[in-house]
Design a protein around this nucleic acid. Structure first.
Lengths: 197, 197
DNA sequence: ATATACTAACTTAACGTTCGTTAATGTAAT
DNA sequence: ATTACATTAACGAACGTTAAGTTAGTATAT
């Protein structure tokens, strides 16, 4: 029978993305995805030519979507310090809202082959990174802007990477999961460091 | 025949650890491990009762080994700022030498169930974290030491997490992979932040 | 307007492969 | 003779994938 509610590629990807984010490429089977979509495994091959293709489509969709948001974040024309605060705040929001995003990036960094890494670097990180480097240069022209940019991004992302570990760590408190709290802390940390001056 | 060169549990783990680090739990099969060890798949079951057990043994071995090193790193009795510099330097060395370590941590954070996360948090991070928190408190008693500790660790670890991506990023240079260069940058970044003051 | 062909979106069933694991067996050293 | 450490062979389950068939809607021809 022709289905009454045919599934679009987008609907399938919307199911597949969180699955891949949570369990990785080899941790998710076509049957897993099909079941969650509510369709037979074979039906997936009508939309995508194979598992690898489906996975790449999921990656592309996630990254291209987010790259636009990230670039927009850096577009503000405020003073450098204000721009940093805004960038960190929105970056935290984004990471807090879409848990899949940072997980997929991590998975690609760990599992991706050369060509996929290159794709990730050029399509997602390149624009973001260049913007952050520029911002770092404006904030402190004496420090190496490349290393500073990595540190800056690392400070923000790491808080969300270890979020799942936080409940088991000493001195953990509920409000450490609030993206606003994290953003405020990260901004100060990046600008002033540890030394009260 | 009885083998002329019987394999010990440690030899098997020494092979399995980098495999799990590179491809994750579901990305490595018992046959993969057996082949690399130079033994039949069934032989592994003489040493470990199953894949899950082997994996947990690999995790435990890696983490308990490193936890000792990490605790030692924090044991110095120098002045706080000097202690920070030493800690960051040795942390960078460690991450640079043993690539498997940070990868396995990341995999556990992403794939681990509750009990495994708890194990990771208590056995590996708890001691380290408490030491870093203490250090942060000494360096700046006004900032939230918990959040500061996460940021501090994040700054250092992130440089090694994205190492594989660096060649494809703009302005990348060879010496950014030198752990001493990273350590020096990170120490300054953590202490002073971006604002020249 | 009705019959016909075509197509998109699925289904069920099965393919060969690989998976984790076990049973039965063998051999060299103690 | 027993034991420690392996082997080969096989189990059922799950894997990615494909072949063949079914049906509801669309397009075309009469």
């Amino acid at each position: 029978m022709r289905p009454l509610n045919p599934k679009s590629n987008e609907e399938i990807l919307a199911i597949a993305i969180p699955l891949f984010a949570k369990s990785g490429y080899s941790g998710v089977s076509m049957r897993n995805i099909a079941e969650k979509v509510g369709v037979s495994p074979a039906a997936l091959y009508h939309h995508f030519s194979g598992k690898e293709t489906l996975y790449l489509a999921a990656m592309t969709q996630t990254f291209v979507d987010k790259a636009a948001i990230l670039k927009e974040i850096l577009g503000s024309r405020a003073a450098p310090e204000e721009r940093l605060a805004q960038f960190v705040a929105r970056f935290c929001e984004l990471l807090d809202q879409d848990n899949d995003f940072s997980m997929l990036i991590q998975r690609e960094i760990m599992d991706g082959d050369k060509s996929r890494l290159q794709f990730l670097a050029t399509e997602v990180f390149h624009g973001l990174f260049q913007g952050v480097i520029e911002l770092c240069r404006e904030l402190d022209s004496l420090k190496d802007p490349y290393l500073t940019a990595v540190s800056l991004i690392g400070v923000v992302m790491y808080h969300f990477q270890v979020a799942v570990l936080k409940p088991y760590l000493p001195y953990s408190r509920e409000h450490y999961n609030d993206p606003q709290v994290v953003a405020q802390h990260a901004t100060k940390f990046i600008l002033q460091g540890l030394k009260t001056c």
